[in-house]
Simulated assay, not measured.
Amino acid sequence: MRRTLTKAGSLAAVSLFALALAAPAQAAQDSAAAAHPAATKAAYFEFTDGRNTFVIQLTDAAKIRQARDVINGVDTENISVMGKIVKTPASYNKPWKYTLAPSSVKFFSMATEVCDASISYVNEHLDEVGGALLPNSTWCPWQSKLTREIPAP
């Protein structure tokens, strides 16, 4: 009986030792995954400036979650859209000749006047963007309001 208890005790000790080593290894894997998340599937959202609609692409999971919170009424303050203009058209954002860089998109409630312009005004004066019009290509249409998520094109 004593030999059985010794074997059981040894087995329990080995199991606890294995668990003790596995926990930090699992924590390291979890932190590595957080530092380098897998590619998030792109999501597309529409906003309006009161006259026109514009589509943005988001690829960051936190920003996608934030956009969905705005649409679902969880976030009622940061409903406007800002970001860096990319002077090339995107297939998901027709008829506009530009879009926003997905990694630059943010949601805001207040911003400076220097980055405010309507969707159509930016489109009509795209060659001036980045200079006197919308310095650093930062666009923050004050009247913008995120309205809905749309299916991927």
Score class of each variant (00 low, 15 high):
Phe45Ile: 08
Ser118Glu: 08
Asp60Ala: 11
Ile79Met: 03
Arg2Ser: 11
Leu19Ile: 09
Gly131Ile: 07
Pro37Trp: 04
Asn136Tyr: 04
Gln26Cys: 13
Arg68Tyr: 07
Asn93Phe: 11
Ala152Gly: 07
Thr59Ser: 11
Pro102Tyr: 12
Thr4Phe: 15
Ala67Arg: 09
Asn52Gln: 15
Ser103Thr: 13
Asn123Glu: 13
Asp116Thr: 07
Pro135Asn: 02
Tyr98Val: 08
Asp116Ser: 04
Arg65Thr: 15
Lys145Pro: 01
Pro141Trp: 01
Arg65Asp: 13
Ala25Trp: 15
Gly73Thr: 05
Asp75Ile: 00
Ser109Trp: 09
Lys63Glu: 08
Ser91Tyr: 04
Leu21Val: 08
Ser120Asp: 14
Ala18Thr: 15
Val81Trp: 06
Arg2Asn: 15
Asp116Val: 09
Ser109Ile: 00
Glu113Ile: 14
Ala35Trp: 02
Trp142Arg: 05
His36Tyr: 06
Val14Gln: 11
Gly50Met: 10
Ile79Cys: 02
Tyr121Ile: 00
Lys7Cys: 09
Asn136Met: 07
Lys87Pro: 03
Ala43Pro: 03
Asp60Pro: 00
Lys97Asn: 13
Trp142Cys: 01
Phe17Gly: 14
Arg51Asn: 14
Asn72Cys: 01
Leu126Trp: 04
Leu133His: 07
Ser10Leu: 14
Asn72Ser: 15
Asp116Gln: 04
Thr40Glu: 14
Ser91Pro: 00
Arg68His: 09
Pro135Met: 01
Ala28Leu: 12
Met1Phe: 06
Phe47Cys: 02
Ala101Cys: 01
Val129Leu: 02
Leu134Thr: 07
Ser80Met: 05
Asp75Phe: 03
Asn93Trp: 08
Leu58Phe: 01
Pro37Gly: 12
Ile85Val: 13
Phe108Tyr: 14
Leu11Val: 08
Cys140Asn: 01
Pro151Trp: 01
